[in-house]
Computed example of a mutant assay.
Amino acid sequence: MTAIDNHAMLGADEHIRPSEANARDFFELLKPRVMSLVVFTAFAGLLLAPGTINPVLGFIAILCVAVGAGASGALNMWYDADIDAVMTRTARRPIPSGRIQPNEALAFGLTLSTFSVAILGLAINWFAAGLLAFTIFFYAVVYTMWLKRSTPQNIVIGGASGAFPPMIGWACVTGGVSLDSVILFLIIFLWTPAHFWALALFKMRDYGSVGIPMMPNVAGERSTKHQIVAYAVATAVVGVAPTMTGLVGWAYGIFAALLGAIFVLCSISVWRMADGDEKMVPAKRMFAYSVFYLFAIFSGLIASHYGAVFSAFAGALS
């Protein structure tokens, strides 16, 4: 059975089967793991931005970003229900498993998108709201509906959608963007291909079964490994850049350099891995470390920034 056949069956089923969805199913539709990363990096952007924001407004801003990210996930699952039904990694998601009907997921995603953007605009500022709207559009339409099924560069270009949250957080405080917020964007943007292609290497059969042109399936494992190393190096370099602009101190720079060196070493282990290796241990290890790397980098940025603020405050009191 092809992905198209599955999509047709899903579309037919929604007219004859009542919904079996509960609150947990709708929460799963929001892609909570992805949402947690989006929320954390947006929160980092909000904290690192110059200036202050009322804590209540800051909470509303992050909540809107979280809801917007979840809306993107729901729209992605709605459109990708046909291929999700075929891939082992996604077959138990709410729509292909039949717990949520496609029309419910679409309505849910569109409603959350509208409310998250409107509330962010009304409560915070319309520049940040515009960035959030563009991020939702980029992920749901540009990446999901166009790039994902048409080019092996899908995750490179589409990765921008996951890189905007710290810029949104920054814009919530400042009403605009700056070089530092662009660097925060670049850290995630350059990190995404190395992170996702490590996953794609050990999920090649899944992507191949539904015709998604992931880099390993189109360019081959060897070319993908070369590119993973290149993006890992670029990520490690940009990861240190906030020290160069003065956003944070040298303690962060040393910390980021160590994290980046390990990231590059992981990518070299993937590069040295034999093509066709069924165990794919280095790729799995790199995928796991890449998640830790991003959380650690943004945690380090927050700790360094507030460590400097605390030191300045203590110095003023002494």
Results as ranks from 00 to 15, higher is better:
Phe189Tyr: 07
Ala69Thr: 02
Ile228Trp: 08
Leu63Asp: 05
Pro102Asn: 06
Thr41Trp: 09
Ser113Tyr: 06
Phe137Asn: 02
Gly246Glu: 12
Leu110Phe: 15
Ser223Val: 15
Ile16Gly: 04
Ala288Ile: 08
Ala3Glu: 08
Ile168Asp: 11
Met1Cys: 13
Phe298Ala: 01
Val39Ser: 08
Val264Met: 03
Ala91His: 14
Ala257Asp: 08
Ala69Gly: 14
Pro282Gln: 11
Pro242Val: 13
Asp84Gly: 04
Ala234His: 01
Val65Phe: 00
Pro242Phe: 01
Val218Ala: 13
Ala118Cys: 15
Tyr306Asp: 11
Leu75Pro: 03
Gly307Phe: 00
Ala194Cys: 10
Phe164Arg: 04
Leu258Asp: 03
Thr245Trp: 11
Ala133Asp: 06
Gly169Asn: 07
His305Lys: 15
Gly239Val: 06
Met145Gly: 09
Leu265Thr: 01
Leu190Gly: 03
Met244Leu: 15
Leu10Gly: 03
Thr224Val: 05
Thr224Lys: 13
Leu75Asn: 09
Gly73Phe: 04
Leu106Trp: 06
Asn54His: 12
Ala49Asn: 07
Arg99Glu: 14
Ala42Gln: 15
Phe287Cys: 07
Met87Tyr: 09
Ser36Phe: 05
Ala230Leu: 12
Ala194Met: 12
Thr90Pro: 13
His7Asn: 15
Ala105Thr: 01
Thr90Ser: 12
Ala236Cys: 10
Ile212Val: 09
Ile4Gln: 13
Phe196Pro: 01
Gly249Ala: 02
Ala66Arg: 03
Ala123His: 10
